[in-house]
Design a protein around this nucleic acid. Structure first.
Lengths: 253, 253
DNA sequence: CAGTGGTCTAGACCACACC
DNA sequence: GTGTGGTCTAGACCACTGG
């Protein structure tokens, strides 16, 4: 693991380090193995700790490393494939659903949500919180926004809030006929509450999946799900289990 | 824009700063406007430049800011919706394709690719490079891997490489009957060549979309497309044009 | 040229996990 | 406790853009 190469091209140190470490991970370490601590590594490569950290950040972003405060830095397993947008014509909360309802409240929709829920400007919405676990670890936190008009027959349910009510709301939703749904994926950073649920620090990179469920020509429900970007590979249109092993240069040319 | 609040909760400074700046962006700045430079901003908030930069990095990751070396930091427009995986049953290179072929070579597949292209272990693959432009700016760079056996009738084409040959390869591909395709999305960082094409620095966050095109029960083509994560929102299953305006807290509760 | 963001340093202290 | 990663500082110099 030497770094004694004075680049002819002024490649940033941290980028070069990233490459060197990446190769070392492929050849000298195995999944779950714990790396030397940051101070040692920095000394070994003759750089400041901040620079070393910049390289580690890159590798963590790429899902190669996992860092935990007070514990250490370990070699991450390959990202798990998490299927999204399968079950093309199913409402959330269906029988084979990977999610677990946590809570439910009835509130006035925040402005940004109301805008996407084109229907019912000032209409109250049920807000269902759900979480998704895969292979023993939390992978996503979701907020579902369901306009009250989408589940009109909810008066029979007496639970005012909590997981029971959440399940009741979702059950009601199944009665509607789902036309289609539309997905969008973008990069975001975890808000404090999501971060906690995902066992990450605030600001951790997440993949935000926004799904609009269309029924009767209206948006009957809106899901905003934040997935851990470091551990997840989102799969669309089936084949959730494909393992893509990333080699030395990952997409080498 | 005051920061004179000594937190009772030990919220990191950069995180608090991110929030303050985010709110300022919503209320006091408009798209395209240029912010004060980092040294001034840091002084104004009474923090070190590195801390200020940490906050700016967050906001850039979220697509709120755009930073360019030698120029300055500007307020980014809302992310553009880029449709992916529409045209459910179309090969790359079809008539309404958003991509532009750049180059084409015939090589032995790198190990990581050969593994995903389950067919033909040692078989040579055509490697087609394409780029995608949307609203006047580059949004994605792609590498298409096409096993030679997928386009057997290519001998008639004499162009050895270049854009012309790339188009010829894609034209041949249309003759196959496409069964389906499978998409996966994950976070990555731009390699040097991709970064250059996307007008970003190496290591910039990108959304990597891997698509496997299935025909005759085999993987007939494999696409690895890297999208700029800062400017793009990937849309699946139609509705490419939906604008989601992010409000003050973006997904406020 | 001057001004910008990008990289890097050598420290310091804090929050957390584990013993 | 000790050891880890996370935050923060106050500098310095580099690479790039634009006038």
């Amino acid at each position: 693991m030497g770094t004694t190469q004075l680049e002819t091209v002024p490649e940033p140190k941290y980028w070069h380090l990233r490459t060197v470490l990446s190769e070392a991970l492929d050849s000298e370490f195995s999944v779950g193995e714990i790396l030397p601590n940051e101070r040692d590594l920095a000394a070994r490569f003759g750089v400041a700790r901040a620079t070393l950290r910049q390289a580690l950040e890159q590798l963590e972003l790429e899902g190669r490393l996992q860092r935990r405060r007070g514990v250490g830095t370990t070699v991450a397993p390959p990202r798990m494939g998490v299927s999204v947008g399968t079950a093309q014509h199913a409402w959330p909360g269906g029988s084979d659903d990977a999610w677990q309802a946590v809570d439910c409240t009835l509130v006035a929709p925040p402005a940004a949500i109301a805008e996407t829920l084109v229907t019912g400007r000032e209409e109250p919405v049920h807000t269902v919180r759900r979480s998704r676990v895969s292979q023993g670890q939390p992978v996503a936190a979701e907020l579902l926004y369901i306009p009250a008009s989408s589940v009109p027959d909810l008066s029979a349910i007496d639970a005012p809030s909590g997981a029971a009510r959440a399940r009741a709301v979702l059950r009601e939703l199944q009665h509607l006929e789902l036309e289609r749904h539309e997905n969008a994926v973008e990069l975001g950073s975890a808000r404090a509450d999501d971060a906690k649920e995902l066992d990450r620090l605030p600001g951790a990179p997440v993949l935000v999946v926004t799904t609009r469920f269309i029924a009767l020509g209206r948006v009957a429900a809106l899901s905003v799900a934040t997935y851990r970007a470091d551990t997840c590979r989102l799969t669309f249109g089936d084949s959730g289990g494909v393992q893509i092993h990333h080699g030395p240069e990952r997409r080498a040319s």
